[in-house]
Measured scan of single mutants.
Amino acid sequence: MTEYKLVVVGAGGVGKSALTIQLIQNHFVDEYDPTIEDSYRKQVVIDGETCLLDILDTAGQEEYSAMRDQYMRTGEGFLCVFAINNTKSFEDIHHYREQIKRVKDSEDVPMVLVGNKCDLPSRTVDTKQAQDLARSYGIPFIETSAKTRQGVDDAFYTLVREIRKHKEKMSKDGKKKKKKSKTKCVIM
C-alpha cells in the first residue's frame, strides 16, 4: 500500500485542523484551538488504489514558523489553505509557496490551493482571484467548507493525484537520464 505524506499549511484560523478532522473523523470542530502540530493517518481508496494518507496539520501562528522547514522537508505534497473571508490569509499563500519551493529546492512541488469556509456569506476573496492565482502557479484550486464537508475529500484526493503525477514524471525523467548515460565512448 502506497503511503502519501501530505502537509496542510496556511495562516492561523483558516480551518486547516477543521478540514483535516472532517476528512479523518467526519465531524466539524467549530471551536478554535490553535494547533502546534498534529499528525493523522487514514486509509482510503483513490482511483481504485488503496493508500495510506499521513497528514500533518501544522501551526499557522507566526511564533511556530521555525518548525516549518522541518515538516516541509518531509512532506510530499501540500494543501495551501486560505479562508475566503480573510484576504490576508490569501496573500500569505505566496509566502508559504515560496518557502516550500526553497526548502524542497524545487520549482515543481505537488500543491493544491484550497479556499476554505465557502459556506460563509462574508467572502472577501473572489473565486476568480483564487483561480487566477492557482493557474499562475500551475496547481489545482478547490473551494471547501469544513463545516458542510463540501470539497473536503476532493481537496485531499486531488493532492494525492498531483503527487502521483509528480512521481510518474520524475521516474520518466530518471529513465531518460539513465538511457543517456548508457551511451559509451570508444577510443581507438
Rank of each mutant, 00 (worst) to 15 (best):
S17M: 00
G60N: 15
Q25L: 14
T35I: 15
K5R: 13
S17A: 01
L6A: 02
K5N: 06
G12E: 07
T2I: 05
V14T: 07
D33S: 03
E62W: 06
I36C: 12
G60S: 15
E62D: 13
D33Y: 10
A18W: 00
L52K: 08
G12A: 03
S17L: 00
V14A: 12
D38N: 02
E63V: 03
A11I: 11
L6N: 01
Y40Q: 03
E49Q: 13
A59I: 10
V8S: 02
G10R: 00
L19Q: 13
D30Q: 08
Q22P: 04
V7H: 07
L19K: 12
I24P: 02
L23Y: 10
Y40M: 13
G10S: 13
H27Y: 09
S39D: 11
Q25R: 10
Y32I: 08
D57L: 01
D54L: 02
C51N: 11
R41P: 00
Y32S: 09
Y64N: 10
Q43V: 11
R41I: 02
T35W: 15
D30A: 08
V9Y: 07
F28T: 03
E63P: 08
A11W: 05
T2L: 07
Y64G: 13
V9S: 04
L23N: 14
V45A: 12
I55H: 11
T35M: 15
D33E: 09
G60A: 14
G10A: 15
G13C: 07
T20E: 03
V14N: 14
V7P: 01
E3R: 08
T58C: 14
L56S: 13
G15H: 01
Q25I: 09
E63N: 08
D47F: 02
E62P: 11
I24K: 11
I21P: 01
E49R: 09
T58P: 13
L23Q: 15
L19D: 08
V14W: 07
Q25S: 09
V9P: 01
I36L: 15
G60M: 15
L56Q: 15
Q61Y: 08
G10H: 00
V14K: 10
I24M: 11
Q22W: 11
S17F: 00
V29K: 04
D47S: 06
I55M: 14
L6Y: 03
V9W: 11
E63F: 03
G10E: 00
L23S: 14
E63M: 03
Q25F: 04
V8L: 05
Q43M: 09
D38W: 02
I36E: 00
R41T: 02
T2A: 11
I55K: 01
L19T: 15
C51T: 09
V9I: 13
T35Q: 15
Y32P: 11
E63Q: 05
I24Q: 12
A18K: 02
K16W: 01
E3N: 08
I46Q: 09
D30K: 09
P34D: 08
E3S: 10
E49W: 04
Y64E: 13
E3T: 10
Q22M: 04
E62Q: 10
L19E: 14
T20D: 11
A59Q: 06
Y32D: 03
V7I: 09
C51S: 09
Q43T: 12
L52V: 12
D57S: 00
Y4S: 11
S17D: 00
Q61V: 09
D38T: 02
V29H: 11
C51R: 05
Q43E: 12
G60D: 15
A59R: 04
I24W: 03
D54M: 01
Y4W: 07
V44N: 08
T58L: 07
D30L: 09
N26F: 03
I55Y: 14
V44E: 09
T2G: 11
V45K: 13
Q22F: 05
D54Q: 05
L23R: 15
L53G: 08
E49K: 11
A59V: 13
V9Q: 04
